[in-house]
Design a binder for these strands. Sequence first.
DNA 1: TATGAATGAGAATTCATTCAT
DNA 2: GATGAATGAATTCTCATTCAT
Lengths: 217, 217, 217, 217
Amino acid sequence: MDEIDLSGMDLPEKERKILQAAIGVFSEKGFSASTTNEIAKNAGVAEGTIFRYYKTKKDILRGILIQAINLFSSKIVIGGVEKIFGSAEEKDLRTLLKELLHDRLKLVETFFPMFRVILTEAIYHEDVREALYKNIAVKAIEAVGNLQENMVNRGFVRGDVSPTALLRSAIGSLAVLIAQKILMGDKFTSEEFEAEADIAIDILLNGLAPRSPDSET
Amino acid sequence: MDEIDLSGMDLPEKERKILQAAIGVFSEKGFSASTTNEIAKNAGVAEGTIFRYYKTKKDILRGILIQAINLFSSKIVIGGVEKIFGSAEEKDLRTLLKELLHDRLKLVETFFPMFRVILTEAIYHEDVREALYKNIAVKAIEAVGNLQENMVNRGFVRGDVSPTALLRSAIGSLAVLIAQKILMGDKFTSEEFEAEADIAIDILLNGLAPRSPDSET
Amino acid sequence: MDEIDLSGMDLPEKERKILQAAIGVFSEKGFSASTTNEIAKNAGVAEGTIFRYYKTKKDILRGILIQAINLFSSKIVIGGVEKIFGSAEEKDLRTLLKELLHDRLKLVETFFPMFRVILTEAIYHEDVREALYKNIAVKAIEAVGNLQENMVNRGFVRGDVSPTALLRSAIGSLAVLIAQKILMGDKFTSEEFEAEADIAIDILLNGLAPRSPDSET
Amino acid sequence: MDEIDLSGMDLPEKERKILQAAIGVFSEKGFSASTTNEIAKNAGVAEGTIFRYYKTKKDILRGILIQAINLFSSKIVIGGVEKIFGSAEEKDLRTLLKELLHDRLKLVETFFPMFRVILTEAIYHEDVREALYKNIAVKAIEAVGNLQENMVNRGFVRGDVSPTALLRSAIGSLAVLIAQKILMGDKFTSEEFEAEADIAIDILLNGLAPRSPDSET
DNA sequence: TATGAATGAGAATTCATTCAT
DNA sequence: GATGAATGAATTCTCATTCAT
């Protein structure tokens, strides 16, 4: 659950180790409760070395945020969505959403420590929210906008709602499920999760209201 | 947005002041970054006094959590839902959900500092999640279960999903909206929020998929 | 040589101890080379206690400077001069200067650690010089101005030079001697010092140039 | 005001740069507050290089002191005095002292950073004072002794005081003026300085006491 | 020889907690 | 009970010095 792979981001060897260790420690205890001493130990460097790369403890956090935004914005997060929806000519939306859910779950699991750090910061700091919004949310909305027309044409989604609303509802439905799986994983067997996922997607697609009898055939 | 009223929970005057101040300070900076000195100042008591009521700083947090669970579990949180759904014989589900959304938004706004503290703790601590789950989630699911039969009979909701799933989807849809409103409030005018709320509820009720043409008449 | 008595300046017991210790340590090693740990030890308080009274190490220095200016400005420094010159109707200038020299020497010896600290700071910091100038030099020049008319009338000093010039020359002549005594004290027996002092005062009064023969009788 | 020229002292290129940079930095912040990192930067060498030439930071200071003593002892300090007093057969003492004052002022201005460093060290360290005394003061006294007989014969100075006393009084009178000019230069216009210098020299020559009326004619 | 990354001992500062009043 | 001064362990950060390249 530790050891996020940052090797893609070409940082000096030591800096990467420090960042990686910091993500682990911050994620475990939160920023303020973490000590540079512990980060140094986990990174396998001297405490002083940390401060060659990051002027202050706070700068480490900033470093993490920057990496996170790089990581989540274009390449992985948005890219993943586009790959799933772009390549899948033949699949119906239900299948696509299921794939998406699993993909996102894996993403969150992989980057869980980083997520936790960022989430906490976002909860407390306007400027972090702002940065996430600008760098991730805006791009995601754009990406959904691009997909939507195609989806509408294929009869997959309603055409009468904005990409924002569409995205929000999808995120809401899936995020709650993912959060539950991640945070209370031990209450969920895999099969249960699959079943719950199917239901959640069904509700997302068809709504809570009963279908009018004739439309179900 | 400050000054949560805990007067219902009969605590010694000073203790209440301390808790209230602590909620404010923890909410602003997080637990670890907050100092007992600042709490004392905000509470208008001497620093030493805090330690008459709470053996350690951590105990203050525990005190907040206990209050929070009391507050959120039965009376306010679940109670609110029951009142809305119970009393409203004549309204349709769309209206009820709208009312619920506004009620929950007001709740979150009122208790925002407390929420923030609890949320952060829940993110980091299994035992807090456990406590919240047992004391709040379980009750909420029960409450929804009780409502559901009635709703199904009135043709408001599908009868083929569990209360858990139902609750999860509803929470997902509405929570994202509330979070957005709370955290990025300045990007939302009231009218925009109303419009977005209507759409979110519509999606929640009817789904993302296009209704089959004949069912719309 | 340590233990400056600051008891006149009513400071809290602990604060006085800290200040006193700081003067000693700063004087011995200079500000930057001194550690708060050593100050605390010398003051007999915990290191943390220092920071209840002075937010930063630098503030301790500021505290010393303030005390020093209080001490040196009115009461002791200027006051001493006035007492010597004011009360002594019958004595000639030579005697007065001798008394002054001894008084100043004692003053410098008593406050040597404080002196050293202030001197070093003054050498490096414009603002300290400014403060000393405004609070001490200006007053001293005034005081000399007040004395001068009386002196001129009694035929003791020339009336054709400004108080500033007069003060400067007097300080120059005496300060070098005092500095030598303080810094190289072990090269000076008391008798030698007295002899040198007499000569220095004679030169100050009569100049380096040979007196014109007739004026010597 | 920076950039002391040490090129006379044949040191390896890098070593000279390091010393020069160190003088600048030490002079600005004092020894303890200066960092080898900053010295390296100012010298345009790597931090490690410093330690090839000087085993410790303290050794850099020692290096400066050695240079300073070389510089000030024979050549510049004493030499300057001898040149002024030796060559000037026709001038009177007032003129000579004026020339000396200007020469010394220029000297102090030129070597101000070095001066500041040495002065601070001398204030704190007996051994530095000792070194300065032996290498500079003793030679200066000798030099003055050599001049004095000639001066006395020409009716310029009193013959009844020791070279030491003579030197001390001269230094006292002129040093105060130079210090004031250097440290509070902005309070002095050039003309004011000249006027003050004339007065100081007059007092040094003729004393503070009024000349006996008949001797002035 | 020169470099500069890495080190770790040591410095200033913070803060929960204690306790005499 | 309430206070707030005092504590000192713990924390962040600095910097002279070393050493592999």
